[in-house]
Design a protein around this nucleic acid. Structure first.
Length: 295
DNA sequence: TACCAGGAGAGCG
DNA sequence: CGCTCTCATGGT
């Protein structure tokens, strides 16, 4: 059976697709002249953000078929942003961060891809993480069904492929000291020793502790996985950018420890703390630090 | 060139 | 505990 390129336009509100795909939560999407190309669960897609909609292309069996549920779920196209933004603390900092990029979204990622991505992210710039990610896809990932002009042609490798490849090959994809971590994490996921699917069912503290038993997973990476897979909306990853921003904006630049910052964040940012964090991260990254209060 | 990157682990006092 | 050092590599 021959696959065909399908096309749909999905209406959305308050959805800045460009900012969302370029916000450091996903590393497998590439901006091409035809739109953003990437994949979810071996399903190739190409996305274009319009004013009140997202244009979606994918490979289907027949014309006129519905957009695959995995893609809609990944995008969170039906999620209303209003109540989330309203739940943020009404301080000057958050108002500025939201005003700077209304429409920034959190995506709902595949747990294994997300875990692997953030194990690879440690002490790496976003551009480098994308390079490692792309190298692993090319070397070890399944071939995607994609149109002839597609630039993204491979899925992120499954745990089995990573285990089979081994540390040496993963290192050749520029993963460095993270290679051993990734292979061991893949092995535990593959054997069922670690159950990624259970994280959403556990209380956040337990889910976090489980993740931190994996090699290469500390507090920050654990929170990224909890947040970016949609398992726990209050997870608040504290990286170097967020740490700088919180110290600058809420602690007069004082040397507050990471643990203290996490504790403060859990109290201050509410049930959608992870969303608040993403707005702060984006603002800090785009505007640079320190950011001065408006006159 | 020097510094730093969406950190984590191990060793130290 | 909390601090420091190391890990691998490349962007800016």
């Amino acid at each position: 059976m021959t696959m065909r390129l399908c096309h749909a336009i999905v209406p959305v509100q308050d959805y800045d697709l460009d900012a969302t795909l370029d916000s450091g939560q996903v590393f497998g999407f590439r901006a091409t002249p035809s739109g953003w190309e990437g994949s979810v669960s071996s399903c190739w897609m190409r996305l274009c953000g319009r004013d009140q909609s997202i244009e979606i292309e994918w490979m289907g069996n027949s014309t006129g078929e519905a957009v695959p549920a995995e893609i809609l779920d990944f995008l969170g196209a039906g999620v209303s942003l209003g109540p989330i933004l309203s739940s943020f603390p009404q301080d000057a900092v958050m108002r500025r961060a939201v005003a700077a990029c209304r429409g920034l979204r959190l995506l709902k990622q595949d747990p294994w891809t997300c875990l692997a991505s953030f194990i690879l992210s440690s002490t790496k710039q976003i551009t480098q993480i994308k390079q490692i990610y792309a190298a692993l896809c090319l070397r070890l990932g399944d071939r995607l069904r994609a149109p002839p002009d597609a630039e993204v042609r491979h899925a992120f490798p499954l745990p089995e492929a990573v285990v089979r490849a081994g540390e040496k090959v993963v290192r050749e994809c520029k993963a460095g000291f993270r290679a051993a971590y990734l292979v061991e994490a893949a092995r535990r996921v593959l054997t069922g020793e670690f159950r990624l699917g259970e994280l959403a069912n556990l209380p956040i503290a337990e889910a976090r502790a489980e993740l931190m038993n994996l090699p290469g997973v500390g507090p920050k990476v654990a929170d990224c996985v909890l947040l970016f897979t949609g398992a726990h909306a209050e997870a608040f990853p504290v990286d170097v950018w967020i740490a700088r921003a919180l110290r600058e904006l809420y602690f007069q630049g004082k040397l507050v420890s990471l643990d203290q910052l996490r504790e403060f964040a859990a109290r201050h940012f509410g049930p959608h703390g992870g969303y608040a964090q993403q707005y702060l991260f984006h603002y800090a990254r785009v505007h640079g630090m320190p950011w001065e209060a408006p006159a």
